[in-house]
């Protein structure tokens, strides 16, 4: 196992311990808004780090668990004994997953399915994974045409970004069948601020990438 995965496992074990301490303090001292925020943050960290290092089951599980606390902290549902009980059970389960992320042990698999069902009931979530999804191959082969209006903020240049690089990156994604550039917003010389970007572009792009991948060019 590589160094980073081991580092994650150490960190996750500590975070799970932190989570347990917070929950015990909630049981002893009652629920405070800070405790909910802290539980959410710890789960969020476990979710993010586990996804980074390929612990997909842990990432998905904590994502669902985190959703409960997101709903609580945004006032959409109230914290309840049932939620706290599921969370405590989940802590033990996450500990097991740290040693068995592929759910190869029957006991962990059964526990996982049982807890996931409870969590989904609590979040009112219908299992969206049952819906048919396009396979990665199908998605890759599908050609889409996008109309892109690239109208950068005036401060783009002063933030160190060259819009022409972004247009090049866009072109690399597929075929840009039409590019219209607009300079009508460029003011007369006395009003011109050379640090401002006044130009904007309209592009018609055909490519196999998803909308998210197209947006990634602009990091937006």
């Amino acid at each position: 196992m590589d160094h980073f995965k081991l580092k994650f496992l150490e960190e996750a074990a500590d975070l799970v311990e932190d989570l347990e301490k917070i929950l015990l303090s909630v049981e002893n001292d009652g629920i405070k808004a800070e405790s909910i925020e802290e539980i959410f943050r710890v789960m969020h960290t476990i979710k993010g780090s586990s996804s980074m290092f390929g612990f997909d089951v842990i990432s998905e599980f904590t994502h669902h668990l985190e959703t409960i606390y997101d709903l609580v902290r945004t006032g959409k549902i109230e914290i309840s004994k049932e939620i706290l009980d599921v969370t405590l059970e989940s802590i033990d389960h996450i500990r097991s997953l740290l040693g068995d992320d592929k759910l190869s042990q029957d006991e962990n698999k059964e526990n996982h399915d049982r807890l996931m069902s409870k969590i989904k009931i609590l979040t009112g979530n219908i299992d969206s994974s049952a819906a048919p999804k396009a396979t990665l191959l199908e998605k890759k082969q599908r050609l889409s045409t996008y109309y892109v209006l690239f109208k950068p903020h005036k401060s783009l240049l002063s933030k160190g970004t060259n819009p022409l690089y972004l247009l090049n990156d866009l072109q690399d994604l597929g075929v840009t069948s039409k590019v219209l550039w607009h300079l009508e917003d460029v003011p007369a010389f006395p009003e011109l601020n050379v640090k401002d970007c006044y130009a904007y572009w309209e592009i018609v792009l055909s490519c196999t990438q998803s909308e998210t991948e197209v947006r990634d060019v602009f990091i937006c």
Partner: peptide
Amino acid sequence: AKAAGATGWIVKPFVPEKLLATVTKVIR
């Protein structure tokens, strides 16, 4: 985050290549 002044984001999970590509794009 954008309203607070962020330039953009990188979604986790990301691979090191994606991180470097985005960083290069922003500070080239």
